[in-house]
Amino acid sequence: YTAFGDLEVFLHGLGLEHMTDLLKERDITLRHLLTMREDEFTKNGITSKDQQKILAALKELQ
């Protein structure tokens, strides 16, 4: 049995499950992801397509 964390649930909701391992390897938490700047997305290997999905979701949360 494995409990999913906030990061996994957030990514799954956006259809971005493939990013879970990448972000965990880089010790990026959901809190960090929510406050990242555009250059940090790129530096951490997050594609512009995935970045757009994340940023759109963040706008909806605000």
Rank of each mutant, 00 (worst) to 15 (best):
Y1K: 12
Y1R: 10
Y1A: 14
Y1F: 09
Y1P: 10
T2K: 13
T2M: 07
T2A: 04
T2G: 06
T2P: 07
T2F: 08
A3T: 14
A3F: 10
A3P: 13
A3N: 14
A3Q: 13
A3M: 09
A3C: 09
F4W: 05
F4V: 12
F4N: 12
G5C: 10
G5F: 08
G5Q: 14
D6W: 02
D6F: 00
D6A: 10
D6Q: 06
L7R: 02
L7E: 03
L7G: 00
E8V: 03
E8H: 08
E8W: 03
E8I: 01
E8A: 08
E8Y: 07
E8M: 05
V9H: 15
V9P: 13
V9M: 13
V9Y: 07
V9T: 15
F10V: 06
F10Y: 07
L11T: 03
L11M: 05
L11D: 00
H12P: 03
H12A: 15
H12K: 15
H12G: 14
G13L: 03
G13R: 14
G13S: 15
L14W: 09
L14Q: 09
L14H: 13
G15A: 04
G15N: 07
G15K: 07
G15R: 04
L16G: 01
L16N: 01
L16C: 07
L16M: 09
E17T: 14
E17A: 10
E17D: 07
E17W: 00
E17S: 15
H18Q: 05
H18P: 04
H18M: 05
H18A: 07
H18R: 05
M19S: 05
M19L: 15
M19W: 04
T20R: 08
T20A: 13
T20V: 13
T20Q: 11
T20D: 03
T20N: 07
T20M: 12
D21W: 04
D21L: 07
D21N: 09
D21R: 07
D21Y: 05
L22M: 13
L22G: 10
L23A: 04
L23E: 02
L23Y: 03
L23V: 04
L23W: 01
L23Q: 01
K24W: 07
K24C: 03
K24H: 06
K24G: 03
K24I: 09
R26D: 01
R26C: 01
R26E: 05
D27C: 06
D27A: 08
D27M: 03
I28N: 00
I28Y: 02
I28L: 07
I28A: 01
T29S: 08
T29V: 01
T29M: 02
L30V: 12
L30H: 03
L30D: 01
L30T: 06
R31K: 13
R31E: 13
R31A: 10
H32D: 15
H32G: 09
H32Y: 05
H32V: 07
L33T: 00
L33N: 00
L33Q: 01
L34Y: 12
L34R: 11
L34K: 12
L34M: 14
L34W: 11
L34N: 05
L34F: 10
T35H: 04
T35F: 06
T35P: 01
T35L: 05
T35K: 10
M36P: 00
M36R: 00
M36I: 00
M36W: 12
M36S: 00
M36Y: 02
M36A: 01
M36H: 00
M36G: 01
R37N: 11
R37K: 12
R37A: 09
R37H: 11
R37C: 09
R37W: 01
R37Q: 14
E38M: 05
E38V: 08
E38A: 08
E38H: 06
E38C: 05
E38Q: 10
E38N: 08
E38S: 11
E38L: 03
D39V: 05
D39N: 09
D39H: 05
D39E: 14
D39P: 10
D39C: 06
D39G: 08
E40A: 04
E40N: 02
E40L: 02
E40H: 03
F41N: 02
F41M: 14
F41P: 03
F41R: 05
F41S: 02
T42R: 11
T42A: 13
T42D: 10
T42N: 09
K43Y: 03
K43H: 06
K43I: 07
K43W: 06
K43R: 10
K43N: 07
N44C: 13
N44Y: 10
N44M: 15
N44K: 07
N44I: 08
G45M: 03
G45A: 03
G45F: 00
I46G: 02
I46A: 03
T47R: 09
T47I: 09
T47W: 05
T47S: 14
T47M: 10
S48C: 11
S48L: 13
S48A: 14
S48Q: 12
S48P: 11
S48G: 14
S48V: 12
K49S: 11
K49C: 11
K49L: 07
K49V: 10
K49P: 09
D50R: 00
D50W: 00
D50S: 04
D50N: 06
D50K: 01
Q51A: 14
Q51V: 08
Q51Y: 14
Q51T: 13
Q51D: 00
Q51I: 04
Q51P: 02
Q52D: 08
Q52W: 06
Q52G: 11
Q52K: 13
Q52V: 11
K53N: 04
K53A: 09
K53I: 05
I54Y: 01
I54A: 04
I54Q: 05
I54T: 05
I54N: 02
I54P: 05
I54R: 03
I54D: 07
L55H: 07
L55V: 13
L55N: 14
L55Y: 08
L55E: 12
L55T: 13
A56C: 11
A56W: 07
A56N: 11
A56R: 11
A56D: 13
A56V: 11
A57H: 13
A57L: 03
A57M: 04
L58S: 15
L58T: 15
L58I: 13
L58F: 08
L58K: 15
L58P: 14
K59D: 10
K59E: 10
K59W: 07
K59M: 10
K59G: 14
E60A: 12
E60N: 15
E60S: 12
L61H: 15
L61N: 14
L61E: 15
L61P: 15
L61C: 12
L61V: 13
Q62E: 05
Q62D: 08
